[in-house]
Design a protein around this nucleic acid. Structure first.
Lengths: 212, 212
DNA sequence: ACCTGAACACCGTTCAAGT
DNA sequence: ACCTGAACACCGTTCAAGT
């Protein structure tokens, strides 16, 4: 009895997160994880209840860089912009985290820190609790949604612009009678996803906090 | 040789869509589908290349009600609101469609009809092609993101408000020094997801089309 | 031509056995 | 106490065989 542990929640979580970032994480497997750790796949069950338990930990870890070193300024709108942009980048790098947050808030430390910054900024802008909460949810929905839709394309890397070109060609060759407006803008579709995100984010912040 | 087909792409797609709507579709299985069709699971491969091919068809089918009977008015902003609300409802009912559209546009008929309506409305509001496209993408990202985050909760049905209550309690019991703003609004968190969606959608439309 | 059913290469997870 | 490895109940998919 008594054997020094070779594994720990932390070490497993580190390896899992690294694996997810390297491979894109679409097909994250406990067998691969065990392989990387030099351990049988099922050894993980000594430290986590199941795969979901592990992934929730990985999900929160992927959000650590969002608030690390984040400074609050006297421009709350700009704080929100910076924080949401950071959140989006972090999630795009770790797509597994996206499916985790979609299932519901993890309510773990790093996620809570994000909530605190955004809600705080909205309240400092003069919004009452009820309006602040609605604005908070709308901003988070938009940021997560943007990351979620962009993650598969970000994973494609260099092939991304080729993909866009192929899609534009499809839109351009539609029946110009039935799809007049789409055909008219076909060449402009799929602009920089950062530009789209910034435009939407600005519109949201302005619209949701107007009249304060 | 020559045997009358018992299956067809259409019949398979109908059954698959029904199965997805009934079960929530989180664990849609070809074996279940075969079972429902009274056919071996692998018979589907005579009509579809693979599961993804079938799901793309199901995804487009789930969007059929979005533009069916949709009338364009002389209030483009209102048209966008109505169409995005319809899209959100349709996707919440068929969560598999969400993972399909996340992988990239299907560019099938029903999806194209949605694009045409939204882009058309934005152009009629006076936006140039480049700005119309950016607004279109931001609106779609927001609508899909909202549906994606709401789908698991919608599937919970009656247990939804109990879930919200439990979450609010978690937020309320945080350390009030470190999470002052979150604790202050804890009771208001997780308002009606429809209210959040409408508020964000209005803010987006206003902010993205201002100055026309 | 269309469907069947065995088979393959995977999953997550359980549990008795080793150390 | 911790890890191993066989085993179970699943997947999607392939392919030869039946009709």
């Amino acid at each position: 009895m008594g054997r020094p542990p070779r594994l720990s929640r932390d070490a497993i979580c580190d390896a899992a997160f690294a694996l997810v970032v390297e491979t894109g994480g679409a097909d994250f497997t406990l067998r691969d994880l065990g392989n990387r750790l030099g351990v049988d796949a099922t050894a993980v069950y000594r430290h986590f209840a199941d795969k979901d338990d592990l992934l929730r930990e990985v999900g929160d870890r992927s959000m650590a860089p969002v608030t690390r070193g984040f400074t609050i300024t006297d421009d709350p709108a700009e704080d929100i912009r910076r924080l949401c942009s950071r959140l989006r980048s972090a999630l795009i790098k770790s797509p597994v985290s996206l499916s985790i947050v979609a299932a519901g808030p993890t309510r773990r430390r790093n996620e809570l820190l994000i909530t605190e910054v955004v809600v705080g900024a909205l309240r400092r802008m003069g919004l009452g609790n009820s309006r602040a909460v609605i604005a908070y949810h709308a901003l988070i929905e938009y940021t997560l949604g943007s990351a979620w839709l962009d993650a598969p394309l970000a994973a494609k890397g260099a092939r991304r612009s080729a993909t866009y070109r192929a899609w534009r060609r499809d839109y351009a060759s539609l029946d110009p009678d039935e799809f007049a407006d789409t055909v008219a803008v076909a060449d402009e579709l799929y602009p920089s996803s950062d530009a789209v995100f910034q435009a939407g984010l600005n519109a949201l912040i302005t619209g949701l906090t107007r009249g304060q």
